[in-house]
Design a protein around this nucleic acid. Structure first.
Lengths: 139, 139
DNA sequence: CGTGGATTGACAATGGTTGTCAACTGGGTT
DNA sequence: AACCCAGTTGACAACCATTGTCAATCCACG
């Protein structure tokens, strides 16, 4: 079941490097930095230049294939994602993220924006917490 | 006393520099970068060292006196804020921001997090749009 | 006044990200 | 197979927001 791999923008070449990045994105489900992914690839014996990692991640992000969120310190973190609009429930301890949908929130943001006469509305929403596993007492 | 000026953390000295930064924060209602504020102060004849601007903004942010949000490129942007929990409706054209409250959203995030067993929940939410003035046809 | 801790700011260092550009790759064409 | 050549790569440098450093300065208090 590897058919859910992020696809590269139409018209680009499926090079070894791009496949490697796309594949790496499938090996974890938390948010990782570009540099983390670069290291991951090097250690897994399928090295890709740092510039290329950045370029590929950017292309995937532009194509909506990966989500980007900013760490506290402003560093960009990446994660593969589904195509539909969604938000994340991120564990602030282990980083694992769950995609969640929020029709309630979508309606609310549109409503609030409308009340103030704002148009062409978009929004960002991330929820942070401690996941069950991380809050479980140590065994 | 109902001064709306940002207050500095308890026990710190109200120096000229810190007052200048706090005052600058009151001269605009959109989000500005630390460097913008540094420039603003220099041009207004009340110069403050860049390090001090960063330090003061950080202290104010820690004390919940100013909001921080990240621009697309990861740059930190600052704006004075009220003490209660709130979100922003930000004009992506002129940058002006309106504080909004969302009990609906608070309830929703807590609910979703709870369903997944997440505890100690917090969240970030920003709404972007085009404000009435910016979407109005030129006068 | 004098003293000491808090504060400042010029400057250097850090680090994520982007720009540069010569070398390389590989699909289409002859 | 050899040739093209636009797309691609990656080592390296440049960029720039942010943080660290530390000697000089300030200021509350005795």
């Amino acid at each position: 079941m590897t058919s859910t791999e992020p696809h590269l923008p139409h018209g680009t070449r499926p090079t070894r490097q791009r496949r490697a990045v796309a594949s790496a994105l499938h090996s974890f489900e938390d948010f990782r930095s570009a540099q983390d992914i670069h290291d991951l690839l090097r250690r897994s014996g399928d090295p890709v230049g740092l510039s290329t990692v950045y370029r590929t991640l950017q292309a995937l992000a532009d194509g909506g294939e990966v989500d980007v969120l900013r760490a506290e310190d402003g560093e960009a973190l990446y994660r593969r994602c589904s195509a539909t609009h969604h938000h994340h429930l991120v564990c602030r301890s282990c980083g694992r993220a769950v995609e969640v949908e929020g029709p309630t929130v979508e309606r609310w943001t549109d409503g609030v924006a409308g009340e103030h006469g704002f148009t062409d509305v978009s929004h960002t929403l991330e929820v942070f917490g401690t996941c069950p596993e991380c809050s479980a007492p140590r065994d």
